[in-house]
Design a protein around this nucleic acid. Structure first.
Lengths: 153, 153
DNA sequence: CGCACATAGTTCATTCCTGCACTATCACCC
DNA sequence: GGGTGATAGTGCAGGAATGAACTATGTGCG
């Protein structure tokens, strides 16, 4: 995706303080960079992070899932999943099925092509993921992880 | 904003390794959480991060800026700025002016309302920013900062 | 001078996301 | 058993971003 541009206030103070000011925006901008790298690695496969995430959920749960479930697990609104599944269905990677037990519900199911795309996507992503983590010193990785706990809502 | 849902592979190994696997997605998801908090703090002012960023550039450079400049400084494509400025102009926060020296160019200028909105936005953001940094232990802040260097492209 | 090329802005189509309004179905319970 | 209210999916409008195609305008040069 690579959204979110920084809004840093010009630092002015060399390297004195730990950039209390711009730390937050450096964080967001680093996240954009990381996201862009993943998206780039994925671009070969024709998938986006959003699409791969849905395929991943479907592959993980070895059975068709209600769209509501997908929304809940993705922490997003239902209408987003409706559209994402529209596109995935259009790509031939996912199928909509009726839920016989609850006629309100619509199940999403991987097609064979979807299963393959997922496998390819996961492989492509794994490489990029390793490359990114490799860019961190051993110590940085663990301390980063500690800091993340405090930041995640 | 709060985009970008995680695509973590179920951890399976308790808390053993430093989550080499999901570290990258934890990172992205933490960034989403932080971004959502900033956006929430800003919501009172009716601004978004994207809009405030443009106001900020305009306020910083004490003169009207060509839209190309805004795009370059935001690291985004020109068409995005066109639309952002459309919305800001619609909000009455920014005006488009002709550039007399280069008739290809269009300058964006803050209106008085824009200047006020910027001030309010910056204040609202500063509070949230401090709150977020405060959530980090002193040590975490600096080690986070170190890690960010390696991750930013 | 005139042509070739680069640059500035806009338009359009598309992705990904939100929130709201609407319909259909289920579940409860009096 | 029939209303009431939660839940499921969709439609629609709009924000934020991309990239491609197009129009002006500026620039440089043979």
């Amino acid at each position: 995706m690579s959204h979110n541009r920084a809004m840093r206030t010009r630092s002015r103070d060399g390297a004195r303080r730990p950039a209390a000011d711009s730390l937050v925006f450096s964080f967001l901008s680093a996240a954009d960079a990381v996201e862009a790298r993943l998206e780039a690695a994925l671009s070969q496969t024709g998938l986006s992070l959003a699409k791969l995430a849905v395929l991943h959920l479907l592959a993980d749960a070895k059975e068709p899932l209600p769209l509501s479930d997908l929304a809940a697990r993705q922490h997003c609104v239902r209408s987003n999943i409706t559209q994402l599944v529209d596109r995935l269905e259009n790509d031939g990677l996912v199928r909509r099925r009726a839920d016989l037990d609850d006629r309100r519900s619509v199940l999403a199911e991987l097609t064979p092509a979807g299963r393959q795309a997922h496998a390819k996507g996961v492989r492509a992503l794994a490489g990029a993921q390793r490359a990114i983590v490799r860019a961190l010193e051993a110590g940085e990785a663990t301390s980063l992880q500690n800091a993340l706990g405090a930041l995640s809502s």
